[in-house]
């Protein structure tokens, strides 16, 4: 045991140096948010010489320019609603396609596979124009519903189900269970890992999306936090790194907390996305 630790000392040192490099931008972001404007632009020290909360006070008091709590709420609402909707809709569809011999099954599956191969940029601007024509811009509708068109989830769950034995479902069916009971008591527990995977992928995708929300929102109050930060970069905070970093800290900390809690599932989900 001891020998193996000593043997791995060089690689531990290398890993630690890389880890510090990875963490430096985040550490710099946090400390800079507590610097004064002049220090944030002139100093080469990572720690502030005089700590100040003025950047945070400034952000929370400029609610018309940067309603950052509203942006966080929008993101929480959109990611939660979008993720639940996508996972639910995709489970139902994949179950129906894998188990129930739905009419038109081959056509639907064909479209699911074809859609995976076609890059998203092709539908982006026409979809924007459709929402514009329908008068739905600057509402939650285009910020949530279009994510349901992704076929990745149906693909993942369908593949999972067809490689999974039907014995339990058949037993439940013979025992007189209804379709809903089978779905709830047999299918949901079975597909839980792949559904979690889909949930994590969908959550990260919606949370990180920048171009689409920037097309379909106009008012400050409808922005997501990801889009809001972009607005600050291009606007009021452009010349103020300290204030910029304070808003970035507020935007980033919730995501990092979610990430650390969901770490286990994210690790699994990355495995599940691929390959098998």
């Amino acid at each position: 045991m001891k020998r193996s630790t000593r043997k791995s000392l060089p690689i531990l040192i290398v890993a630690t140096i890389i880890a510090i490099l990875f963490l430096l931008p985040l550490i710099w972001m946090i400390f800079t948010s507590f610097k004064t404007l002049s220090e944030s632009m002139a100093s080469s020290s990572i720690l502030p010489s005089a700590w100040t909360l003025e950047n945070y006070v400034g952000i929370f008091s400029s609610v018309t320019d940067a309603p950052i709590l509203r942006w966080l709420f929008n993101t929480a609402f959109i990611t939660a609603a979008g993720t639940v909707l996508v996972v639910f809709v995709d489970i139902l569809a994949a179950y129906s396609l894998a188990r129930l011999n739905v009419p038109g099954k081959k056509v639907i599956l064909g479209m699911v596979f074809a859609a995976l191969a076609i890059p998203g940029i092709v539908t982006l601007f026409p979809a924007f124009y459709m929402f514009k024509t329908a008068g739905l811009l600057d509402s939650y509708v285009p910020l949530i519903l279009p994510y349901t068109a992704s076929t990745m989830g149906v693909f993942l769950i369908y593949n999972f189900l067809i490689s999974f034995p039907k014995d339990l479902e058949e037993a439940a069916y013979i025992d007189g269970a209804s379709q809903w009971q089978i779905l709830y008591h047999v299918i949901f527990p079975t597909i839980k890992p792949v559904a979690m995977t889909l949930g994590v992928i969908t959550f990260l995708g919606i949370y990180n999306d920048f171009l689409w929300p920037s097309l379909v929102t106009n008012s400050n109050d409808m922005k997501t936090i990801t889009l809001g930060i972009a607005t600050l970069i291009q606007g009021a905070n452009f010349v103020n790194p300290a204030k910029m970093m304070a808003s970035t800290v507020i935007a980033t900390i919730p995501a990092i907390i979610v990430f650390l809690i969901a770490n286990k599932y994210i690790v699994k989900s990355v495995t599940n996305t691929g390959i098998k």
């Binding site: 890389i18 920048f210 990801t226 930060i229 972009a230 970035t248 980033t252 995501a255 990092i256 990430f259």
Partner: peptide, 17 residues
């Protein structure tokens, strides 16, 4: 976790930094 953590940050926050 350390090598993976920056993936949880949005593209706009990365750009700001």
């Amino acid at each position: 976790t350390i090598f993976f953590i920056s993936y949880s940050i949005s593209v706009t926050a990365v750009s700001a930094i």
